[in-house]
Design a protein around this nucleic acid. Sequence first.
RNA 1: GGAGAAUUCGCCUAGUGGCCUAUGGCGCACGCUUGGAAAGCGUGUUGGGUGCAAGCCCUCAAGGGUUCGAAUCCCUUAUUCUCCGCCA
Length: 421
Amino acid sequence: MIDLNLLREDPAAIKASQRARGAAESLVDEAQSADAAYRKALNEFENLRAEQNAHSKLVAQAPKEEKQALVAAAQELSARVKAADAAAGEAQAALDKLVWKIENVVIDGVPEGGEDDYVVLKEVGTKRDFGFEPKDHVALGESLDMIDIERGAKISGSRFYFLKGWGARLELALMNLALDQAVEAGFTALITPTLVRPEIMAGTGFLGAHADEIYYLPADDLYLTGTSEVALAGYHRDEIVDLSEGPLRYAGWSTCYRREAGSHGKDTRGILRVHQFNKLEMFAYIDPADAEAEHARLLAWQEQMLQKCELPYRVIDTAAGDLGSSAARKFDAEAWVPSQQTYRELTSTSNCTTFQARRLNVRYRREDGKTANVATLNGTLATTRWLVAILENHQQADGSVCIPEALRPYLGGATSINPKN
RNA sequence: GGAGAAUUCGCCUAGUGGCCUAUGGCGCACGCUUGGAAAGCGUGUUGGGUGCAAGCCCUCAAGGGUUCGAAUCCCUUAUUCUCCGCCA
């Protein structure tokens, strides 16, 4: 949620952000008056409560014969306190409802507009001139016996698959390469729960507009997470974390589950868009003043991984309207996919500033001893989707796939994956 | 799945309806003492809300309830532990 102080002091900034996102500006005015009403109601309740507390002391100390009269007065006061309490509670609920609808305030420089209004920040690497008709990852996965989509569908339905042989090994190699890089950079490795309680799902903002993207287990009232970000963000919920030795950085590995409810007919071929995949996610808790610098670092680590996998890619600055509600800025790195002659997202990194931490109540102690909300940031370091780009970009004319050097130590030193016959 | 016990400040702990504006210890911080340290002594030490401020309000796992008044009584939920049962 947004900072209420900002709502009081600089509502114009929030309005500008809402405008850039194409979201309702009127929410800001509504929230402001709800805030004023809440504070008024709270004040009335607190004054009455103070009166009641004082009166209660009189009752306790009064001699027996006076007690009855005092209690009678207290009863009447008690009723008024109860009413004021209820009114304040309602005012707060009304305020919360409005405030929760306001999305994070975008950072200056984020392009305005929607999905197609991104700005390309850079293009790195060269797209290969194959000199032959490159196969797509489905054909490669099949001929190299790495990806079995048919049997995936037989077992679990569409958008499921088996990774087999070199496919399974390549996936684990990729995850291990990413994990080792993260650990070397100072991240703490975490394997996270993938089933979480409703309040964690809601707290991380995933139960909002995209609730139908999420698998839910009604018998247990648990949600399957679409990213370990959920568990990583919830990890320090209701805590005052120690940032005196620098930011807390976690590298969370988990399987991710997504219903892909809104994408029927989109990317139906192959493993580009699937219901279940693995992901290594970076997550940082940091002093808000350092958040933008950390965002740049996360992006740099992502680029490092892409370069280790020897993939041509570009980096885009996502437009305001295409940001998640928690993100104040988002960079995506997209790898070139030869069979589609287009760039496809392999990583995404969001700076959530204090928005997510405020909702999850994660704070740190500042140098002046006061507590304040931390900033949280997240970013992908590897996912199953990377296999698509790796297979397609490194395929050879003879149908084999050359293994990027950085991955070889994780694959017993193998240099290429070859067809059986 | 069944039965029982527990949850109080970073940690341990006192507390069975008004004197709890929550006890004591450990730890931590600051001060005194010291050549310096330890010990000792003293002071401080949960967070949050609201207000220009003084202050006031909330916070004893969470949420409800009873009561003029709840850490304390009742209900629900969560978590932990013990025992029994079941089990890949």
